[in-house]
Nucleic acid binder design. Structure first.
Lengths: 146, 146
DNA sequence: ACTTGACTTGGAGCTGACTCCAAGTTATAA
DNA sequence: TTATAACTTGGAGTCAGCTCCAAGTCAAGT
């Protein structure tokens, strides 16, 4: 398993679509583990590392914040023995639900428009989903390891 | 039509869930039109205005940026004669597609995990959607609307 | 030995979307 | 009338997620 091919940060950037700066930034905020160094200076990455970065990109695409993604990265290795991590799977399911809610929200607007609720009647209870608090900013930074 | 009931910014805030600051901010960035003033100073809002704010909240929930939302607000009134705005409808359809793509992204990760692509093999082409900008094959998601 | 280029670090700057504040004005109630 | 609450404005600050930059280091080629 795990071929021994190593990649520079430039190659890694090319292969993952993340900029070099972004990769270093992810390391800085500890979203990615500190990369191994060649001669104690230049970063080197293995396929597994690229894989993690791609996962991050995937999750981001679905609207996850980096803070929300972090727990996934902390799960041992993500590579070996993932099925033994029902926690991850559940988090994913949860997130999927959020996206489904988003779609429902959108669907409601579309319906609203379709059904001409807008014409004449309008203005009473336009978009029920609006009521709640839900997916707003959500700040919970208190762990800032020195 | 349109009842004549008027709301202060506080009432409006309460009814829409947006903070007073946010409402003023939306006016400042011209996402909302400049509100009418009572005695030339205090803002007053009508039901239609609240409706607009709720629409904004809805769209934001589905991941639209304020800049993306602005065109919708510029469409004449949103209230009267909406069906005569196929532009809006089309924009919405487009946005909906984006969300569907997000879901597809997520689904791919879930599939990835399910299928144990992760075990042993791993690391070759983990999440195809990551590669390009869009272009994903898009497994036709049969709609699950009730 | 020298130049070039890829890399390093720390930190500054930027955008979006707020959120907070101070200082002033107006409306209302006692 | 006066105190208080509600509101106004302009501008500063915050937070996430980058992006850019300067100054320095290191490896390889000539």
């Amino acid at each position: 398993m795990s071929d021994t091919e190593l990649y520079s940060i430039k190659e890694t950037s090319e292969k993952t679509g993340l900029s070099e700066d972004t990769i270093r930034y992810y390391e800085k905020i500890e979203l990615l583990p500190r990369a191994k160094r060649k001669g104690n200076t230049h970063r080197v990455y293995r396929s597994e590392d690229l894989f993690m970065m791609k996962i991050i990109t995937c999750l981001k695409k679905t609207g996850m914040s980096l803070d929300e993604i972090r727990p996934y990265m902390n799960l041992s290795s993500f590579n070996d023995d993932l099925t033994a991590s029902p926690e991850l799977y559940e988090l994913l399911q949860e997130h999927k639900k959020k996206i489904e809610n988003q779609m429902a929200s959108l669907q409601q607007i579309m319906d609203l428009i379709d059904s001409k609720l807008l014409q004449g009647n309008v203005i009473s209870e336009p978009c029920t989903i609006t009521g709640g608090k839900q997916t707003m900013p959500m700040k919970s930074r208190e762990d800032k390891t020195p």
